[in-house]
Each structure stands twice: as C-alpha cells, then as structure tokens.
Amino acid sequence: MWRYLAEAGAVFAKDMRTELRTRVAFNALGLFAITTLAAVSYTIGPYRIAEADRPYLLSALLWIVIFFAAMAGLDRSFVKEEDSHTAALLRLSARPLVVWGGKLLFNVVVLDLLMVILVPLYVVLMGFEVRSITGLVWILLAGGYTLAVTTTIVAAIIARASSRGALFSVLSLPLLLPLLIFVIQGTRAVAEGSAGGVISALRAVISLGGVMTLVSIVLFPAVWNE
C-alpha cells in the first residue's frame, strides 16, 4: 500500500511540476471560470433574481461554471502524455493503477484549487447566501472528487482518439448529469439551511463517486494498456 502511494505520489508530483512550469490546465480552467463568473455576475448580479428563486438559480449557476471549467482543462494530464509522446514510456515504467491514482490526485487538487478561488468570489459577487459553510464544503469536496474521478477515466479513454475535439465533453456529460443534479440539490439545501437536504444529496454524490471509483479501477488497466 505504501509503495503504491509513493509511486502514485511520484506521478502526481511530476504532473504538478510540469503543470506549474507550463500552466496549460491552470490557465484553461482559471480563465474559463473567471470569464464565466465575470459574465454571469455582470449580467445577472446579486439583485436581478427574485429572493425565492435565488437558492435554485444560484446553485445551478455555480455548478455550471465549475462543470464547464472542468471540461476546459481536466483532460490535459492524459492528452499531454499522448501529444508529447511520453505515454509509451510511462506505460512501460509504471503500473496502470499507479498512473490512474496519480492523475486522479492531480485532477482533484486542480479542481479543489479552482473551487477555493472561485466559490468565495461567486458568493461575494452573486450575493449567494450560505447558511451552512460546513455543508457547502462537504458538497464541494464530494462533488469535486466525483467530477474529477469521472473526468479522469473519460480523459484516459479519449486521449488516444485521433479526433478528440468535443469528445471529452460529449462522453462526460451523460456520466456527470446525475452528479450535477445531486450537487445542485445539495448546494440549494445549503442555501436554504436544510440539513436533511444536504445529507441526502451528500449520500447520493458519495455513492456516485464510489461507483465511478470502482468502475475506473476495473476499467483503467484495459483503457491504458490497449
């Protein structure tokens, strides 16, 4: 177990080091998120939504921004390995689940960093009232993990396709639609101060994350090696 963690940690550290030097994924995610947030806050802002509609609409808008920002950059870690011809050597050096674990950790950290910057800005700019910060943090952590684990396996699948184009978003959307519904419900419950709603949404999101983790562990070696 320790050996696995050390090897996956090496893949994560390598990806993080190369990302800090090129900033391809950081720029893609960050620019998309900030541009979308600026556009939404300028056109809608905190006062153009009726009080009763706020929890619904602001929760949905928050996750739409996070989802599309993720679509803009979370496929990079696998696509870059193929584009720069480093994937073959990685396949011959590291065990498949080590690669998966390292790439997943990288995507989780990148998404969490994005949310650390984006969510407080969103709360301030959109006047999003949060009744339970703990609840919001749990929804963001669970939702972020499930989003990352799903996009990681989809990125591995599309990385070797010759015409990737919109393939990443097209394949991810049906897998992520149930997640989006549950995290939006959970975030709305956070805004309404409904502890029962938060717990129920968290259960669903954690279950989805667990299923996607198991599916990825089973599928990834075949996806990566074949």
Binding site: K14, R17, T18, R21, H85, T86, A88, L89, L92
Partner: peptide, 9 residues
C-alpha cells in the same frame, strides 16, 4: 525514437 522524456523537467 518515438518515446520521449518530459521536456519541462
């Protein structure tokens, strides 16, 4: 020849 190392490292 077709297997590269990490150019940024």
């Amino acid at each position: 020849p077709a297997m590269s190392l990490y150019e940024e490292l």
